[in-house]
Amino acid sequence: MDLKGYRTLSGAMLRVGIFGYGGGPSVIPLFRHEAVIRYNWMSDKEFGELLAFANALPGPIATKLAAQLGYQQKGTAGAVVAILSHILPTSIAIVALLGALYSMKESVIVAGMIAAVRPVIAVLLGITAYEFCAKTWGGLGKVIGVGFGVLAFLLLGVLDLHPAIVIITFLAYGTVHLKVYNWANQRWEKKKKEENREGMSS
């Protein structure tokens, strides 16, 4: 049994669980740092695909990402280890400190701490969003990438559609776009080869 691999996975998920203040979207940059930058388990593109897939499924994003990363590294056992490492320490800490948190919820110091950490979370999310946009521009082009960003904002922010509907719709388009792109690229390469053969024969 590769105990070192399990320790690495457990440590990564533990750090995300402890430092993922606020939960939800705030943990995404932390997951990305562990999976892409620290351990190089996957590329930015693969992490973006993983995030899109996880968002399309029901349930908290943090546990879905932990489960998927654990499964990719160590199979089913890895998924179990990753989820437990991610949720157990903070769950135990919350239960243990619940009384203290309720007694300090009106504290000016605690309120200041919460207010101070929010800009950090906003910057982390902004950096992650920018890097995803840069990858999108490379795959779809800036015009289509920006257009899709505006369309996603309208669907999510204005029309208030469920995120899963928007994600599934864009995934469907991405599948068609990739197939059309590959088909067109193959046609173009075939045409160039034929032109080269004709040029050599003449």
Rank of each mutant, 00 (worst) to 15 (best):
I121V: 14
A111M: 03
V146E: 09
L156T: 07
P163M: 11
L124I: 01
F148V: 08
P163K: 04
G149E: 02
L125G: 02
M113R: 01
V143G: 11
G141N: 11
H86Y: 15
D160Y: 06
I167K: 05
S103V: 13
L88S: 11
L151C: 11
G147Y: 01
P163C: 07
G78I: 02
V80W: 06
K135E: 10
M113K: 08
P119V: 01
G126F: 09
E106T: 15
I127E: 15
L159Q: 10
H162T: 13
A93H: 07
I127L: 13
V117M: 00
A172F: 05
V120E: 00
A172V: 14
P119L: 07
A152F: 01
A122C: 08
A93P: 02
I109H: 10
V95P: 01
V150F: 10
W137S: 05
F153G: 06
L151H: 05
A152H: 00
G147Q: 06
V108Y: 13
G139E: 05
I165S: 03
A134R: 15
I114C: 01
V123K: 06
P119G: 07
K142D: 12
F153W: 10
L98E: 10
I83L: 11
G157E: 05
E131R: 14
Y102L: 15
K105H: 04
V143D: 02
V95A: 14
I127K: 13
L84Q: 06
V150E: 08
M104R: 03
